[in-house]
Amino acid sequence: MPDHAILVSDLVVRYGALTAVDGLSFDAPAGAITAVLGPNGAGKTTTIEVLEGFRRPDGGQVKVLGLDPWTDHRDLVRRVGVMPQDGGVHRGIRVAEAVQLYAAFHRDPLDPDTLVDRVGLSARRTSPWRTLSGGEQQRLSLALALVGRPELVFLDEPTAGVDVAGRRIVHDLVRGLRSDGTTVVCTTHDLAEAESLADHLVIVDHGRVVAAGSPSEISGQAGPPELRFGGPPDLDVAELAVHLDAPVTETTPGEYLVARDPDPATVARLTAWLAARDLPLADLRAGRQRLEDVFLRLTHSDDGDEAPER
């Protein structure tokens, strides 16, 4: 197997006058989990659809498992599993039926019954898709992507609409895939999920890659350490700034950023200042920025406070 399951260089995709993907390049290492992150409309799904062979690129080079996803589509579909964002499952098909159907498409599939158990749908075997909850639909959809023992799996928003318990099942399955040597490429809005799950992150905005690397590499690009805390809104930041000898800003109501190295003495002075005024401390974070902060800075340079759309 090559070192990289996916190679994308200078990919361009246009929809009429709109350029959805604009010279995008990245690699996905074989046998690892790569998460593609970005705000809505960044070009994530379009890129994944090119890799899946649904869409012909307008420019650039794409290799998936060493093949061209457009011209070698027939060979590639045997080796790749796809979980689309919208499910793509017939409303009336039952859980066990769907998994058996997709198993029949492949030469050496997983055992459908065992797979239904593994995605936590044993009690729903005879339930039609339309009666499943959002999380159950996602887990069935994931099972359909996995049943053919793919070498590479594309997951488009695999945990969208999945509850906490379902999310754990999905995460365990995805980690299990990695232990079996399967390459996983997923898109997600959930930065905490990407940070805990992925070995490799690709952050996309306006059809281009704005950052790529391991979660710690990307968080390391975040700039100097800082101190953030939560408290009541409308604190007197000017007075606090004098007390701490550092600029203090209220980033959103009740969320504060202190721009200085968060040494224990500074933290002590902050808590003392709050205690003297009998103010509560909602949370306290010292050190490097989280992925979310980096993400927001990279994808919303015009407005650092705006949250990504969900």
């Binding site: 027939r74 793509g88 017939h90």
Partner: peptide
């Protein structure tokens, strides 16, 4: 028509069924 609207045709197109 509904298979197409719900993405069933598209998804089946990404399997060895073809």
């Amino acid at each position: 028509g509904f298979d197409r609207q719900y993405g069933v045709l598209k998804r089946l197109g990404a399997t060895p069924l073809g």
